[in-house]
């Protein structure tokens, strides 16, 4: 059975020590993912915030980011390897190109989706452009922004395997080796590792999201938040909100 082979490969002590062991490969894989998401964020977050805030260049941004999506990562990595002569930079650039569109979309849509009335009120109360961006738009964009980061991370984790083509010891290695020698246990074992890594990172980022997204937004996102009695930020039940009685509460 393929899965029995896969688990045998995963549990084989030989694969857990040395320079090409599972922990080393997981580490390298993670390092490339981290670098790619970080690099992509440095480009995409400021750009998305700027375009979302000013409303300028939205069409170009969406078009450009869709064009990036169309680039095949494997081809790009191979191409960059050939012209740059080294693996690391080419792989990183390839993964960054992959990660930019979802992060850009998250940042841009996050800002764009902030209620127009809220932005209007911020302006009307005398916030400057940057105060409005940092104090109102960015906090309200965080759910979509974090969503974009999660998307990008998932894609990068899955795709960082291609680095193995240019000789880097990521979790793509067991996939390539397994295929080459028809060792399906190793092949599926590698795939399982990648999947587990993706899920773990996604859970971690979901947790980060819970920490950074303001409580007032989590309340409105929760399905129960639409009803009359609502949870407070501390999660305990509060008294139901008193219903308006024609304004005679004074």
């Amino acid at each position: 059975m393929i899965f029995a082979d896969a688990f045998a490969w995963l549990l084989d002590p030989v694969n857990w020590s040395g320079g090409k062991s599972i922990p080393v490969r997981v580490g390298i894989h993670l390092l490339y993912c981290l670098g790619a998401v970080l690099g992509a964020s440095l480009i995409a977050v400021p750009l998305g915030l700027y375009v979302g805030h000013t409303g300028r260049g939205g069409v170009v941004l969406v078009g450009g980011s869709n064009a990036l999506r169309a680039l095949p990562t494997l081809g790009l990595v191979t191409f960059l390897y050939l012209i740059a002569g080294g693996g690391t930079v080419g792989v990183l650039i390839g993964l960054i190109v992959l990660a930019v569109p979802p992060i850009l979309a998250g940042a841009y849509a996050g800002i764009q989706d902030v209620d127009r009335g809220v932005v209007d009120a911020a302006r009307g109360m005398g916030m400057t452009g940057s105060q409005r961006l940092w104090r109102v738009e960015v906090p309200n964009a965080l759910p979509l922004l974090v969503g974009g980061l999660r998307n990008a991370t998932l894609q990068v984790v899955a795709t960082a395997s291609v680095a193995a083509y240019v000789g880097i010891e990521t979790l793509g290695r067991p996939l390539l080796d397994g295929l080459r020698v028809l060792d399906y246990g190793q092949f599926v074992g590698g795939a399982i590792l990648i999947a587990v890594l993706a899920v773990v990172l996604d859970v971690v980022l979901a947790g980060v999201g819970r920490l950074v997204v303001p409580a007032g937004l989590r309340l409105s996102a929760a399905p129960a938040g639409r009803t009359r009695s609502r949870r407070t930020q501390r999660g305990r039940r509060e008294e139901p909100v008193p219903v308006e009685s024609g304004g005679s509460t004074a």
Binding site: D115, G117, D120, A121, G124, M125, P139, L217, S220
Partner: peptide, 12 residues
Amino acid sequence: YVIQQAGLFPHR
């Protein structure tokens, strides 16, 4: 400045 539907900041 007061607007329709108040425009309160949801995160505050």
